[in-house]
Amino acid sequence: MKIQQYHRATSLEDAYNVLHAGSNNHILGGALWLKQIAKEIDTAIDLQDLNLHEIEQTETHFIIGSMATLYRLETAQAVNEWCDQLIKNSMQHIMGVAFRNTATIGGSIIGRYAFSDLLGPLLVLNAEVEFYRAGKMTLEAFLNERRMPQDILVAVHIPKERGQSFFKKVSNTRLDFAVLNIAMFKSKKEIRIAFGSRPGVAALAKEAMKIINQTPSWQEQRETLINALLEELKFGNNQRGSEAYRKQLAQTYLIRGIEEVMHNDR
């Protein structure tokens, strides 16, 4: 990776202006993935002085600054107590601690990485992303946007909601990207389910969620549930696993996950 200029931003407005001053200017998160994919950057913009690394809470939400590291969020006790350790359980399988001390929440989200183990858990927690200019939108809406935003991700907002969680990463080796990951969260209102690394980017299994949330005796609807999942979400091939393998995993862990969040709720 070649970097022509380095700019340490003094404000969000300053960072935004530099970002828009050239099409090959980039915001630096942890820069771990950027280093692997970017050949040349005109101006690298560093947000480290903008106090975006804090994790704060209001009565209703946790607000995670976009420059907070993965390890900081993983070890944020209050956040993990609320979400039944879902964040911690999903992050512990992302490389090692030294990696997670470097990678940032913002960098992990903004790239909409298909292999991400974090996006699924954030989806089922109904997270919202806050941009400097565009303001807040649901993470789901952001993931569905076609264009990469030329904006600065400021924070992630996670609603405070108690519940039971399930997370499973299936991978060929412990440090490899997932063949498939599955996140579930059962709040008082509903169960939410997301599948990532399909190998497409994480998405909510809305049809399956509808069935399970509207059917008290879901065990009798297992086939319907599985069919709804496989019809709605696309599972495909890549070097880590085949479509058929992913579909088999998805069915198995859909049922196991539901059983677990239901069981733990008793």
Partner: peptide, 22 residues
Amino acid sequence: ASSCGTCTVLVDGKPMLSCSLL
């Protein structure tokens, strides 16, 4: 490539990967 950990150093007391830190 941020994967093996042989380049680990402590930055402000935290283990980090020096191959990926500018």
